[in-house]
Measured scan of single mutants.
Amino acid sequence: KMTIRVKGKELARRIAKEMKDRNLKVEIHEHGDEVILEIE
């Protein structure tokens, strides 16, 4: 399990899509400006 902190929703969406393309499970937690992606 891996956690990534990202500034900006646009970048977070791009990373999430990339991870889904690799068949990984992604959970997205938004905290205002910061987005936390949990990847399994």
Score class of each variant (00 low, 15 high):
residue 35 V to T: 08
residue 26 V to Q: 01
residue 33 D to C: 07
residue 1 K to T: 08
residue 25 K to I: 10
residue 40 E to S: 15
residue 8 G to M: 06
residue 15 I to H: 00
residue 1 K to S: 09
residue 14 R to D: 03
residue 33 D to A: 06
residue 12 A to C: 04
residue 17 K to T: 07
residue 11 L to Q: 05
residue 12 A to R: 02
residue 30 E to P: 04
residue 40 E to L: 12
residue 32 G to Q: 06
residue 4 I to T: 02
residue 18 E to C: 15
residue 28 I to W: 15
residue 14 R to E: 05
residue 40 E to M: 13
residue 13 R to I: 13
residue 10 E to V: 08
residue 13 R to V: 10
residue 17 K to L: 09
residue 2 M to N: 04
residue 24 L to T: 03
residue 38 E to Y: 15
residue 12 A to H: 01
residue 9 K to T: 09
residue 2 M to K: 08
residue 3 T to Y: 15
residue 7 K to S: 07
residue 38 E to F: 14
residue 9 K to S: 07
residue 21 D to L: 14
residue 13 R to Y: 15
residue 30 E to Q: 09
residue 35 V to M: 11
residue 5 R to W: 09
residue 8 G to S: 15
residue 27 E to H: 12
residue 37 L to E: 00
residue 12 A to M: 03
residue 13 R to M: 15
residue 12 A to W: 04
residue 21 D to G: 11
residue 6 V to I: 12
residue 29 H to T: 12
residue 8 G to E: 06
residue 15 I to M: 08
residue 32 G to P: 05
residue 29 H to N: 05
residue 33 D to V: 06
residue 34 E to C: 13
residue 36 I to F: 10
residue 34 E to M: 14
residue 28 I to E: 03
residue 39 I to G: 01
residue 5 R to L: 09
residue 20 K to L: 13
residue 7 K to G: 04
residue 35 V to C: 08
residue 29 H to C: 13
residue 6 V to L: 08
residue 4 I to N: 01
residue 19 M to S: 01
residue 14 R to Q: 10
residue 40 E to Q: 12
residue 34 E to R: 06
residue 5 R to T: 08
residue 22 R to N: 06
residue 21 D to M: 13
residue 9 K to G: 06
residue 9 K to F: 11
residue 31 H to M: 13
residue 14 R to N: 04
residue 1 K to L: 08
residue 9 K to Q: 09
residue 39 I to F: 08
residue 25 K to W: 10
residue 8 G to H: 09
residue 33 D to M: 06
residue 39 I to R: 01
residue 15 I to Q: 00
residue 14 R to I: 08
residue 15 I to C: 12
residue 28 I to T: 04
residue 27 E to W: 14
residue 5 R to K: 09
residue 9 K to V: 12
residue 18 E to H: 13
residue 10 E to P: 04
residue 30 E to A: 08
residue 10 E to M: 11
residue 34 E to K: 04
residue 31 H to Q: 12
residue 3 T to V: 14
residue 32 G to K: 06
residue 2 M to H: 09
residue 16 A to S: 04
residue 24 L to G: 02
residue 4 I to M: 09
residue 6 V to K: 02
residue 30 E to G: 06
residue 24 L to E: 02
residue 32 G to V: 05
residue 31 H to F: 14
residue 14 R to S: 05
residue 10 E to G: 08
residue 18 E to W: 15
residue 34 E to W: 15
residue 16 A to G: 03
residue 25 K to H: 11
residue 27 E to M: 14
residue 25 K to D: 04
residue 39 I to Y: 05
residue 10 E to T: 09
residue 37 L to S: 01
residue 21 D to K: 15
residue 30 E to M: 12
residue 39 I to C: 11
residue 20 K to I: 12
residue 22 R to C: 14
residue 4 I to R: 03
residue 30 E to H: 09
residue 4 I to C: 13
residue 7 K to W: 11
residue 34 E to T: 12
residue 16 A to H: 04
residue 8 G to F: 09
residue 20 K to A: 12
residue 19 M to H: 03
residue 11 L to H: 05
residue 37 L to F: 06
residue 37 L to G: 00
residue 11 L to E: 08
residue 4 I to S: 01
residue 38 E to N: 07
residue 32 G to M: 05
residue 25 K to L: 09
residue 14 R to F: 05
residue 28 I to P: 01
residue 18 E to N: 11
residue 25 K to G: 04
residue 9 K to L: 15
residue 21 D to S: 13
residue 12 A to D: 00
residue 2 M to R: 12
residue 28 I to V: 09
residue 29 H to M: 10
residue 14 R to T: 05
residue 30 E to R: 07
residue 35 V to Q: 04
residue 24 L to Q: 04
residue 19 M to G: 01
residue 27 E to A: 12
residue 35 V to Y: 15
residue 22 R to S: 04
residue 15 I to W: 05
residue 14 R to W: 08
residue 22 R to G: 03
residue 19 M to L: 14
residue 37 L to R: 01
residue 36 I to E: 04
residue 34 E to P: 02
residue 7 K to N: 07
residue 24 L to H: 06
residue 9 K to R: 14
residue 1 K to I: 10
residue 16 A to Y: 12
residue 22 R to K: 09
residue 6 V to H: 02
residue 1 K to A: 09
residue 23 N to D: 07
residue 11 L to Y: 07
residue 7 K to Y: 12
residue 18 E to I: 15
residue 17 K to M: 10
residue 39 I to S: 01
residue 24 L to W: 14
residue 1 K to N: 06
residue 10 E to D: 11
residue 26 V to R: 00
residue 35 V to K: 02
residue 19 M to A: 07
residue 9 K to D: 03
residue 24 L to K: 04
residue 21 D to V: 08
residue 26 V to H: 02
residue 33 D to R: 05
residue 16 A to L: 12
residue 27 E to V: 14
residue 30 E to V: 12
residue 1 K to R: 12
residue 33 D to I: 05
residue 33 D to S: 07
residue 17 K to I: 07
residue 35 V to W: 15
residue 9 K to H: 10
residue 21 D to Y: 10
residue 8 G to W: 11
residue 37 L to M: 05
residue 10 E to W: 13
residue 20 K to E: 11
residue 12 A to K: 01
residue 28 I to H: 03
residue 7 K to I: 11
residue 5 R to N: 04
residue 30 E to D: 10
residue 34 E to Y: 15
residue 39 I to N: 01
residue 24 L to A: 04
residue 20 K to D: 03
residue 33 D to Q: 06
residue 27 E to L: 13
residue 14 R to K: 11
residue 37 L to D: 01
residue 4 I to L: 10
residue 25 K to T: 10
residue 28 I to K: 02
residue 40 E to Y: 15
residue 13 R to H: 12
residue 5 R to D: 01
residue 12 A to T: 01
residue 30 E to K: 06
residue 19 M to T: 01
residue 11 L to A: 07
residue 7 K to E: 04
residue 7 K to D: 04
residue 9 K to P: 06
residue 23 N to Q: 07
residue 23 N to A: 06
residue 2 M to E: 04
residue 37 L to P: 00
residue 31 H to C: 15
residue 31 H to N: 13
residue 6 V to Q: 01
residue 16 A to F: 10
residue 13 R to F: 13
residue 2 M to W: 14
residue 33 D to E: 11
residue 5 R to P: 02
residue 6 V to T: 03
residue 25 K to Y: 09
residue 37 L to W: 01
residue 12 A to S: 02
residue 1 K to E: 02
